[in-house]
């Protein structure tokens, strides 16, 4: 079987985010960009499924401008077999992104589509679920363990109440949470090999995907700073204050 993994280019998680003074967004010039960390975990899981003999091919896909090729090359260096780059300079929101991935899934017919649970830039946490809806496939989001048993996947999910286990029929969508695995380090020779692995570029227009209604971003602001509260004089005062707020 094939596994299709979606990856996104985002501002690196180590970079301190700075909101532009004019409110037009966050500063991204000269800022380090990387593969979304949850997507990296998704790539790793796909590779582990393949290495365990449960899949034959790992295809990695991204949507975005030319520079996103870097992230595809990283995934190829990790071990993905080939890459698909849907080229567009437009901002792609989750529903349109899911429609694009649906078009790729229709073409490639993977048994599993793996995605990160959310991108660390827009923090939407939507694409996997939306792709599940559009394809009428089962979804297992926030995965912390994936077991493939024939035509089903047993997925442990990190939910607020603890760890939930679902059994889902393949084909299915799985979104990766932080503890699913620790992505491997990329080896130098594999970085060189990755440059020769197949990377197919498709113009977005050629996929005939209808752009979904979009959410308009009016402005971007820095989060409100916490203000200093009050100093209390004694433990008794503190206990009273916390009781008043219903916290203890």
């Amino acid at each position: 079987m094939k596994i299709l993994v979606g990856v996104k280019r985002v501002v690196d998680f180590n970079v301190r985010i700075q909101v532009k003074p004019d409110g037009s967004g966050v500063a991204t010039d000269g800022v380090k960009m990387s593969m979304n960390p949850f997507d990296e975990i998704a790539v790793e899981e796909a590779l582990r499924i393949k290495e365990a003999g449960n899949a034959e091919e790992v295809i990695v896909a991204t949507i975005g401008p030319k520079a996103c090729q870097e992230q595809l090359r990283t995934a190829l260096a990790m071990g993905a077999d080939r890459a698909i780059h849907v080229l567009t300079d437009d901002e792609i929101q989750p529903l349109t992104g899911a429609r694009i991935l649906k078009a790729l899934a229709d073409k490639e017919e993977p048994q599993i589509v793996m995605l990160g649970k959310q991108a660390i830039d827009d923090d939407n946490n939507q694409t996997a679920q939306m792709l599940g809806a559009l394809s009428h496939w089962p979804q297992a989001t926030f995965a912390s363990e994936v077991k493939i048993e024939g035509n089903t996947a047993i997925v442990t999910r990190e939910v607020d109440a603890g760890l939930e286990t679902l059994s889902i029929d393949l084909p299915a969508i799985i979104s990766a949470d932080l503890r699913l695995n620790e992505p491997r380090y990329v080896k130098l020779p594999d970085i060189m090999k990755a440059k020769r692995k197949p990377l197919e570029a498709i113009a977005l227009a050629d996929l005939n995907v209808e752009v979904a209604p979009t959410v308009k971003v009016i402005k971007t602001t820095a989060p409100a700073k916490r203000e200093a509260g009050i100093k209390v004089g004694s433990v008794a005062e503190l206990v009273t204050a916390l009781k008043e707020k219903g916290l203890i």
């Binding site: 529903l95 939407n124 939507q126 679920q129 599940g132 809806a133 559009l134 989001t141 939910v159 209604p213």
Partner: peptide
């Protein structure tokens, strides 16, 4: 916007062809 709502709502939205506002 708990794991319950995060898991569920985008699935609803996509079926109805609507974008979602998260969080």
């Amino acid at each position: 916007s708990t794991t319950f709502g995060k898991d569920l709502m985008p699935r609803v939205a996509a079926h109805l062809g609507r974008p979602q506002i998260s969080d």
